[in-house]
């Protein structure tokens, strides 16, 4: 599939199958209540954008989905697996859920190719040759195959983030989490990363994305979730959410980020 074909493609609708259910999840940092009774259900193939002011708990929420953060009460089920303290469950979930970080978190002591083949070889036990083919395939998809033998430190921020996305894709995950993937990038590099994410969205990947890129939300999101002070204040389809925000907090937030 060429890039333009993908660009013109319309994202397939999500299926009816639930892959993530968050039921009354609560989390505290000491006395600070970061997540308050959060309820959210995500269907397979659904693309969700989570936004909100800083400190609203949006990153914490998606970090709970692969257990980078623990929650204290409530229940989170991912791909039919209950995420609790059970290490086996946590490892099973992490094999299916991959995360792209704000600061890329590539491994600086390995080449791009080694970054990509590491998890398939050690976690999925893919033979090395196959893992390399897989890695080259995804590097081509993020249009960076020619950098395979460089070290992350030799790449620009946008290139590094695309490598990080390819690294996640190499695990062939069912769900991708994005934690502010473009906020550490120079402005001219934001687009190259968003383009890759839009393509991914249009291929039917289940995505949860914490971002302030409202253009991205309008283009691909099935639902936009607005969080403030640890609660989900409002959620809806992008056109409803942006054109008719219901709560005052959402209106204020939107006016602040859309005004500039």
């Amino acid at each position: 599939m060429t890039a333009t074909e993908t660009m013109n493609k319309v994202a397939p609708p999500p299926s009816d199958e639930d892959v993530i259910t968050i039921n009354k999840a609560n989390k505290w940092y000491g006395n600070f209540h970061v997540l308050k009774d959060v309820d959210l259900t995500v269907r397979k193939g659904e693309r969700i954008v989570i936004c909100g002011p800083s400190g609203s708990g949006k990153s914490t929420l998606i970090r709970c989905l692969n257990r980078l953060e623990a929650y204290q009460t409530g229940e989170i089920t991912v791909d039919g697996i209950l995420l609790g303290d059970d290490v086996k469950n946590i490892e099973a979930v992490r094999r299916e859920v991959c995360m792209v970080f704000q600061h890329f978190n590539l491994f600086p002591h390995m080449t791009v190719l080694e970054n990509l083949t590491l998890a398939p070889i050690w976690v999925r036990k893919t033979p090395k040759k196959e893992a390399i083919e897989l890695a080259m395939h995804y590097l081509q998809r993020v249009r960076i195959a020619e950098q395979a033998h460089k070290f992350p430190g030799q790449l620009s921020g946008g290139q590094q983030q695309r490598v990080a996305i390819a690294r996640s894709l190499c695990m062939q995950p069912k769900i991708m989490l994005f934690d502010e993937p473009t906020s550490a990038l120079d402005p001219e590099m934001v687009k190259e990363v968003l383009d890759v994410m839009v393509e991914l969205a249009k291929e039917g990947m289940t995505m949860l994305c914490v971002t302030h890129e409202m253009g991205f939300a309008k283009e691909v999101a099935d639902r936009v979730v607005f969080m403030d002070a640890g609660e989900i204040v409002e959620m809806g389809e992008p056109h409803d959410f942006f054109d008719n925000p219901k709560s005052d907090r959402t209106k204020l937030f939107l006016s602040q980020i859309l005004s500039h």
Binding site: N66, R67, L68, E91, R94, R95, V97, C98, M99, F101, H103, N105, L106, F107, L118, A119, W122, V123, R167, S168, M171
Partner: peptide
């Protein structure tokens, strides 16, 4: 070693 390196390892499913 930055925390992000531990988190990247975890999120890829490495033990």
């Amino acid at each position: 070693v930055p925390r992000g390196q531990f988190e990247a390892g975890d999120s890829l499913g490495l033990s």
